[in-house]
Design a protein around this nucleic acid. Structure first.
Lengths: 237, 237
DNA sequence: CGGTGCGTTGACATTTCTCAACTGTTGTGG
DNA sequence: CCACAACAGTTGAGAAATGTCAACGCACCG
């Protein structure tokens, strides 16, 4: 393998190692997987694949982003998912369907994808059982997270969802002015919780007025954890 | 293997073959997997496992049902999921965590579970690559279904969700009195769509008044598919 | 300095839920 | 076979939660 190819595959390995599916694999195996991959570049709005095409690969977003969508009978575009760096997609197409069940276009420019070629990868998959175990493990985990979020979303109020989220965050300090830093911009946090930024802001405002906490930019100081936990359990609003 | 054991393993194979994870496997492989399993019976409310226990197996519901739940710090029980026959659970515990991240209790009586023993199963998993491929495929598929539902839930109105659901159902007839049968009781359909039975009833009522459809028990006759599609696309309410 | 985008706040609209009453059906025990 | 309980489904009235639209301050960046 020439010098250039080596660099490319190192870059690919770098991306793969960050992927939940492969995070637990040894460097050696990662290198083998990298050898099954190609690096591809797209401009914004460029098509990666179309619904119905034969699926011979799956993909990992390295930079930029992609949109998965389907065209309805009436020509309307229904967006299924927007993917960002570090996420993989179309595994199901490769392992299950044999064709892409949706279309895919780049959203950012430049968008760089790692294309994991199905044929050599499946060889490796059959040979090295650690890959299969790692993928099954990571898929199961994502699945349980999603299931939890799904019924949380339909069962639990916005306030309780926010409270639960906060209580999962890493906390600094042990005595009542507990301090924590939001890892996301508030608008992204809102999106994650499936609420509007306005509602998020109002929840914080309400809790601030009640003396429950204090907000300073992206750091919160929590005075009353017990009440917050009660809210997380759906008791108060 | 004695006659009785044989019967049991046939029954187990029966259950496994219906499982999405294993649906695509050959009878031969299914039989091998069955050999890794035991059949277990529980009474309603009986505990299957507790949060934190070492996970040496995963399970498939054969009859009855189970509830997965977690106990919050305050002792409140938070239900994560209710599982019915044909569903598997705790794969993640086995493949990922090594312990159960939630507790599990039977809800029906009698509840029969197939326990897939981790140790022999993992052996098989490493030996026979078709198992790994089948599991990855089925997990990916469930994942994409869930992702779709998740953002549908936060993006799309109750009416649109119902319309989408109806349009996915098998339809009888091709010319405008399109007829379809609801496979679930209306209250279960409502739960599936994360709405209340009342809202469901009102949606049907509204559409009936608009001349869009006709309801007779669990069969619907749809007169205007175009409008229904428009509603599914979020255009009208 | 002006622009752009996040966060906040207010007023208002809307969707959906909750509670309650009523109907119709089904299944059961007398 | 009937009466009655139990439950799914429907309908109405009102309340609550959340979204929408609009305005504004404020920080950051060219």
């Amino acid at each position: 393998m020439d010098y250039h190819g080596n660099m490319v595959h190192l870059a690919i390995a770098e991306t793969l190692k960050r992927l939940p599916h492969f995070r637990t694999l040894s460097d050696d195996v990662i290198a083998q997987v990298s050898a099954c991959c190609r690096l591809r570049s797209y401009q914004a709005a460029e098509t990666v694949f179309m619904e119905g095409q034969a699926a011979k690969s799956f993909f990992v977003v390295r930079a930029g982003g992609v949109r998965l969508y389907r065209l309805s009978a009436t020509g309307r575009e229904q967006v299924l998912n927007n993917l960002r760096p570090g996420q993989s997609f179309a595994e199901a197409a490769l392992f299950n369907f044999g064709f892409f069940p949706a279309s895919c276009a780049a959203t950012g420019s430049p968008t760089e994808l790692v294309e994991v070629l199905g044929q050599p990868f499946m060889e490796l998959f059959k040979t090295d059982e650690t890959i299969a175990a790692a993928m099954v493990g990571s898929l199961c985990q994502r699945l349980s997270v999603l299931i939890e979020r799904l019924d949380e979303l339909s069962t639990v109020s916005a306030g309780a969802r926010l409270a639960r989220h906060l209580l999962k965050l890493p906390i600094e300090g042990t005595t009542p002015p507990l301090e924590l830093k939001l890892p996301l911009a508030k608008k992204d946090l809102a999106a994650h919780l499936s609420i509007t930024p306005e509602t998020l802001s109002r929840l914080f405002g309400r809790w601030r007025d009640r003396g429950l906490m204090e907000t300073a930019g992206s750091t919160l100081r929590i005075f009353d954890v017990n009440t917050l936990e009660a809210i997380a359990d759906g008791d108060g609003a």
